[in-house]
Amino acid sequence: MASIESMAANFRRLDQFARADTAMHRLDARAKVMATLAFIVVVASFDRYTVAALLPFFIFPIVLAALGKLPTAYVARNVAVAIPFALAIGLFNPLFDQQVLFKLGSIPISAGWISCLSIVVRAVLTLSAALILIGVTGFPAVCEALERLGMPKVLAMQMQFLYRYLFVLIEDTRRSARALELRSCGRSPRLPTVASLIGFLLLRTWQRADRIHMAMLARAYRGDFHSRKVGNFGSGEVAFVAGWLVLFGLLRVYDASQLLGALVGRALP
């Protein structure tokens, strides 16, 4: 139950960060969404044995988080949660791909280890970028931007509702879980009990969805979501997107890590 509560608190914090007011927050959501999508595509486009060339890309999440005043510890903690999942995907690579690429001292490093590491680095890059995007924009604004960039309306609406009612569902779950715990007298609940609790949560959610739909119909809803906001995609937004696109292009073509290494190598005798 503590984990449900901390999850809710964690979520609320992200929402709070999104309501701050920095230059990064004021930027039109579409610009940030476009830059982040480009970032994810470029990071994903690298060869599977790439590690070093990916590292310079950390500049994007770092700059965004710094300008948006997101606490590093918060981002790091939430991205760290996802690392085991990325590891699970790359876990078998060292077993299947045992060709030795190079030796670190006397330890042979196989291609599998490198591709596994590459997966983890990419996961950290893309996840932190997505998390920071939401942290400096707010989930509803991201949905709206995606919709205005061409995502189907229905999908955008579903995402909005998911976000809004996640908080209500978490509250609901927390209450049910607490009631269960109080009457379990310290014993861990049996599987059928938990199953029926989850079943009732589902049914209650269903009923609520019905009531929300009624409330929407009662307010003249006819299938279209209208937005109050008028977008403001000015020169600042164009410069933001163009600047990042150029940087991503350069980093994709030139391996900045290698160049830096060569420079340092030349400087040191």
Partner: peptide
């Protein structure tokens, strides 16, 4: 239940 009625961000 006002939670049913307030569904926007």
């Amino acid at each position: 239940d006002p939670d049913d009625q307030l569904f926007m961000p």
